[in-house]
């Protein structure tokens, strides 16, 4: 029974009912406008950010200057300063990150999904990984400063930086590995077991190849995060004024490959940008914007590879 007299009056009056419906529809329209406004803020941020970077950085980004900007080391003269050492450093650090994080992350993912018994230890490791994913990146910098730089005595080298970022993206790799292993239907495993394959043979020959798409996506998302990460590398004391390239990894004389570059000091793109943006001279803002554009293009490129891969693998494999 309806006891609210106002509501009773409305319910007995068709005009009032129509009006009430109209009013509700109006509220709905207002909310849709609010929703559009919220999303517009996000959209506008992206547009203004990219436009500002492009316009401010244009003097260095136009086709006449870009090759010089990409091929010259930083300098105290803003017009001479480029990002050669920064992008080479980024590349080498990411290489170390991949070499460390990929086997460790995939291994951990396989163990947790395929081997681990469901007990308190699994629960504990799960909570621990979730938490590691949420630890601020600068804490990884403090870990690296205390552990890699001083206890292991690796110094402020490319090896330290690569390992730091590897630890940072490890949770991402583990979680996506687990998710893509979980998506493989049990029938695939049962089929392999029924012809006598061992556990590892089943995983390595059957489950892993099918889940490679998802795992690869996770790795790439991690790499794009590592590319833009600045704080942990600042903390380990990455030098911002590096005018020389690390030792070349490939040599003309035997044994042809050298690992000296692992120990050399470095700078990376986001640190270079941070360095320029925090200088008082306004001229360096141009360099900062140009470096920002290069950084943005790189991370977007890597991200779109991940989006494309996810799309392709979702289409091609159907169980």
């Amino acid at each position: 029974m309806v006891h609210n007299p106002k509501l009773v009056a409305v319910l007995h009056n068709p005009v009032a009912i129509a009006e009430s419906i109209q009013q509700r529809k109006r509220w709905e329209q207002i909310f849709i406008l609010l929703g559009w406004f919220s999303l517009l803020v996000a959209l506008l941020t992206l547009v203004v950010l990219v436009a500002d970077l492009l316009i401010r950085g244009w003097p260095l980004l136009n086709p006449n200057f870009l090759p010089k900007f990409l091929s010259s080391p930083p300098s105290s003269d803003p017009e001479e300063a480029g990002i050669l050492t920064a992008w080479v450093g980024s590349l080498l650090v990411i290489l170390v990150t991949i070499v460390v994080a990929v086997p460790l992350g995939i291994g951990a993912g396989i163990y947790l999904e395929e081997y681990a018994p469901k007990n308190w230890l699994l629960d504990f490791i799960e909570i621990n990984i979730t938490n590691l994913a949420g630890v601020p990146s600068i804490i990884y910098g403090l870990l690296a400063l205390g552990f890699f730089v001083y206890i292991l005595n690796w110094g402020e080298s490319i090896l330290t930086a690569g390992c730091t970022l590897a630890l940072l993206i490890l949770p991402v790799v583990i979680v996506t590995t687990r998710e893509s292993l979980r998506a493989i239907p049990i029938g695939i495993r049962e089929g392999a077991y029924s012809v006598g394959a061992s556990r590892w043979q089943t995983i390595f020959d059957h489950v892993l190849p099918y889940s490679m798409g998802g795992i690869l996506t996770g790795i790439i998302v991690g790499v794009s995060r590592a590319l833009g990460e600045t704080a942990p590398l600042v903390t380990i004391g990455a030098l911002t004024f590096i005018t020389f390239l690390p030792d070349a990894p490939i040599k003309a004389e035997p044994p042809f490959i050298s690992f000296n570059w692992l120990w050399s000091p470095f700078t990376v793109l986001p640190i270079q940008m941070f360095n320029w943006v925090s200088r008082p001279q306004e001229a360096f803002q141009i360099n900062s914007a140009a470096a920002g554009v290069v950084l943005l293009v790189l991370t977007l490129l890597v991200n779109s590879i991940a989006i494309y891969l996810r799309y392709r693998f979702r289409k091609s494999i159907k169980f």
């Binding site: 950010l49 833009g228 600045t230 986001p270 941070f274 943006v277 950084l295 943005l296 991370t299």
Partner: peptide
């Protein structure tokens, strides 16, 4: 996915 240093800028 935008690097945070770009947001700082």
């Amino acid at each position: 996915g935008i690097p945070t240093v770009v947001y700082g800028y």
